[in-house]
Write a protein that binds this DNA or RNA. Structure first.
Lengths: 193, 193
DNA sequence: TGACATGACTAATAACCTTAGTTAGAGTAA
DNA sequence: TTACTCTAACTAAGGTTATTAGTCATGTCA
């Protein structure tokens, strides 16, 4: 029996991401990932620092994927239309990659895990840029971005966990919710001209 | 050694809630609760249907507490001011009762666990009433309530899990975020007079 | 060829949750 | 009072997970 299965770190992350997106983050156990890769659980420790290390890699990988998703969503669109596009891309990401999406929380402290922190900050920066390009001063933008993040995260978390009760008209609710925030952002933009 | 410790169901829920609020929902294990009560883990099965059963009771208890919190927050206030008060009460609840707050998700399906579903719906109904009293038609209120819930849940979840990065100006961000939603709600109210 | 690093492995331990079967104590009815 | 019954504790045992420690085959490179 050959001792070298030749598993790469990328294999581990891909297997974990695949399980997490299919069955939920909780299902991406070391045992499950090892099983998927055809190795024994302790062997994973040669690639990853335990479960928390694997989760961390998942979050980094997810952040990069989210960044690409946002970049594609924005393209050369600007302003409110770009925000709408981002919002829908985020929702689609949450649907396609539930496990990765859930791996973003809890977030690391900036000085504890710089690499992960920065990876997770990138998509936020991208959105920040859209607001700043709209002419919103930084002091206001920080609150508006937090509002947008909160709304999107809250909506997608509630939606995924069936927190809305009757699943009727959720698409319309999402659009209306996003428009509410965008209206506030546009008002702030108009205000600071 | 006396075999009757005389533990009541309420004792179990209180112990679990206390641990969950202090150390997080994950820390409220059967082992920890049994330890707190001075009994062995399997004995808990005489009171509760396993871990999931205990979590469920936690969610029911938390919903009742949240309902009381909202009722107090509203008092005899109406309209936008009532919504502000609810928002801040919700945030305080999330801080004082992290474990209970986290026990609300994932939510049950209406026909799977009616008792829990209805308990969790009560606080939402309360907020719905405020909107309807403002003269907002039901067809619009549903979207606005979802927007408000999403924003509050998202904000409090991100805040608790340090998702906002730098913890500067979070209070101001919260107020600004809530005002954004309230502005939309007031606009809808003015629109349907 | 021989040393070494890599990346598998087995063995073992520690938290958990859960089920099955047992038993002491307390209330209730004849 | 005595016998019955139920409650609510217990012990024993098994399963899933993560984790650590120690071992060993395989391929690479000096």
């Amino acid at each position: 029996m050959g001792r070298k299965a030749g598993i790469t770190l990328q294999d581990v992350v891909e297997a974990a991401a695949s399980i997490a997106d299919r069955d939920g983050l909780e299902a991406a156990t070391l045992t499950a990932v090892a099983g998927e890769l055809g190795i024994k659980t302790p062997s994973l420790y040669n690639h990853v620092q335990g479960l928390s290390g694997m989760r961390r890699l998942l979050a980094i990988h997810g952040s990069q994927l989210l960044l690409e998703t946002f970049e594609e969503a924005i393209g050369d669109i600007e302003g409110a239309e770009a925000l709408r596009s981002i919002a829908h891309a985020d929702r689609q990401f949450a649907r396609d990659h539930r496990g990765l999406y859930d791996s973003f929380l809890p977030a690391p402290k900036p000085d504890e895990d710089t690499e992960l922190y920065e990876a997770m900050a990138e998509p936020v920066f991208l959105v920040a840029h859209v607001l700043l390009d709209m002419g919103i001063p930084q002091s206001e933008a920080i609150h508006l971005i937090r509002a947008l993040r909160a709304l999107l995260h809250g909506f997608l978390d509630l939606e995924a966990k069936e927190g809305f009760g009757m699943p009727i008209g959720i698409d319309a609710s999402f659009d209306a919710s996003v428009e509410l925030i965008i209206a506030g952002i546009e008002a702030a933009a108009a205000n600071s001209k």
